[in-house]
Design a protein around this nucleic acid. Sequence first.
DNA 1: GTGAAAGCGCTAACAC
DNA 2: GTGTTAGCGCTTTCAC
Lengths: 352, 352
Amino acid sequence: MNIYDIAKEAGVSPATVSRVLNNHKNVKEETRNKIQEVIKGKNYSPNTIARNLSVGTSRNIAFMVPDIENPFFSKILHGISDRAMDNDYNVFMFGTAENTAREHKILDSLKIEMMKGLIIIPVSEADRETAERLKEFEEQGVPVVLIDRDVRNARFDAVFSEDMEGACEAVECLIEEGHKKIGIITGPDTSRPGHERLKGYKRALANNGISLNKDYIICGNFMEDESYEAMKQLLDLEDPPTAVFTSNNMTTLGALRCLKERQMKLGADISVVGFDDIKELAYTDIHLTAVTRPVYEMGCEAMRILERRFRKAEGVEEEKLIIQRNLVKTWLIKRGSEKHKDLSGGSDTYHT
Amino acid sequence: MNIYDIAKEAGVSPATVSRVLNNHKNVKEETRNKIQEVIKGKNYSPNTIARNLSVGTSRNIAFMVPDIENPFFSKILHGISDRAMDNDYNVFMFGTAENTAREHKILDSLKIEMMKGLIIIPVSEADRETAERLKEFEEQGVPVVLIDRDVRNARFDAVFSEDMEGACEAVECLIEEGHKKIGIITGPDTSRPGHERLKGYKRALANNGISLNKDYIICGNFMEDESYEAMKQLLDLEDPPTAVFTSNNMTTLGALRCLKERQMKLGADISVVGFDDIKELAYTDIHLTAVTRPVYEMGCEAMRILERRFRKAEGVEEEKLIIQRNLVKTWLIKRGSEKHKDLSGGSDTYHT
DNA sequence: GTGAAAGCGCTAACAC
DNA sequence: GTGTTAGCGCTTTCAC
């Protein structure tokens, strides 16, 4: 069943049917009603593909994410998805598995004309090929919005967080507890959250006159397993740190695994502050102090920026050239894991 | 740039270009090369929408899930997504938020023509409207595969798990520990996992000559908050249960929240066994004994079934009428939370 | 306010 | 082996 069947049935031309389908004005109320009646009666719904071909665009947006199972990303997707649904966009989900090759492959197979926009958390900011491909999308009129991670060699609209400030606050919280020997398990240096959080760590130390110890900086690549190894390495130092800042949720889990294995009590034998919260820990003995941010809203915001770009493309809005890069604020939630039994202040309050 | 440009440039007809694009045989090696050269040279890629319109189908599959952020569903998505990518399908993700109205809305807006297949974890099996819509999809040639939950009034291909058996094993494990007063926080009665797991609970009791106590059965609707309330209710009974079976991961979290609040020690003051594991707990003091199943594989399997249906539709395979309903096995991982200090066997081994 | 008709870019008979 | 051509279902000028 197509627009012609409806037209015939309603005794009008396909053009008119198309008009009511698209809510055009110039249609007599009477004919409009008649047509809508027929449409309902025949339970007709227009063919999106044909429509897309005709108008040369779609309402599909692609969301590319490094790890489908990471709750942080799920939450972003949730934000994107809710806002997309409200505005009748459909979102395709692609997992890159933290693998640039896979990222390229997906980007190549994404038919440009099928996508109206692209939201991506790129695997690596050092990757030129991804940057090239993204630029191509923009050139073809498909706007790109980054979330959380940046790319070099190009500027796109983006939603980031105050990684440096958040990390700095976290480490300063440890310093306030009296810690001087503070380690960090970093993310990859090729991602904004990776290097900015490290920068925040360094700044906190500098602000407080604590000199940097290279041994205390180990990369965990935001991966649980590597972070576990990193934690082992830190603890096995001759002069191990009394506190560790873990750079993201996976990093924190890896570190916790190590502590558990060694039967070290968090908030007593060792202190840990993490970036990004882990909801499930709330009902356990792990009272994690963590940097938090409005993750769901980051997704919504990315979608909002995209829509703005669509409107600009249609000439509805001006200032086509301004690139929008939003920074969301972070805040620290203290729960006790920043404490240490050997340092002033004690940790009793948290271990009742 | 389109197929005509390429044709002109290569000095052939658009049909021939189309032939090489689609790997048809009847093309002279020489012309094929020539055309491929031009394609590469002009960096041309065919328009998927036009192709879809022409052949009357797409490679898009829709995945509808009740809760985008539940890790259980993320894992399923991961399975679907990986397999889809390997076979060049694209997956649209839709979150129904456990809301039938939203589910209907999405189903209605999913233009039938745009989807080649549908994988869904329906909100409620009692919902006729969803069932009707799904049937319509199948009638229009869009196969539907259910995961985890069923719908009444219709039969679709599906991937379920052995909910009853899994729950039964979990509860029998508690019974083996000496428990006689065992509570359950159930899921909604309108979902297969909900009622089947309850059935498993009942069967375990019956198998072991333990009579049913209605007070011990409380519905948590698979929601964390409701489950928290349910746990409170159980503990406030005059003769509270010594052990509780929690029917899914969210249910377990709600119960844990309550225990934490009341400072009850899991595996000592009370025993809990849950359906579905919670990864994050591994590094905490919560040694949850849980029913486990191959979640990622359930996603892959759903996708595999869908592809099979596509092949059948194309007449590649026979036996068009057989409905395929797969049941994945579950197994129990014991970690100590089934123990209780007041019962034989002791729990010391788990509290070193 | 409405209709006729020319596309959108590709595929698939059918003819040669 | 290759070309011609008529769609796929919709939108959108341009007339009327």
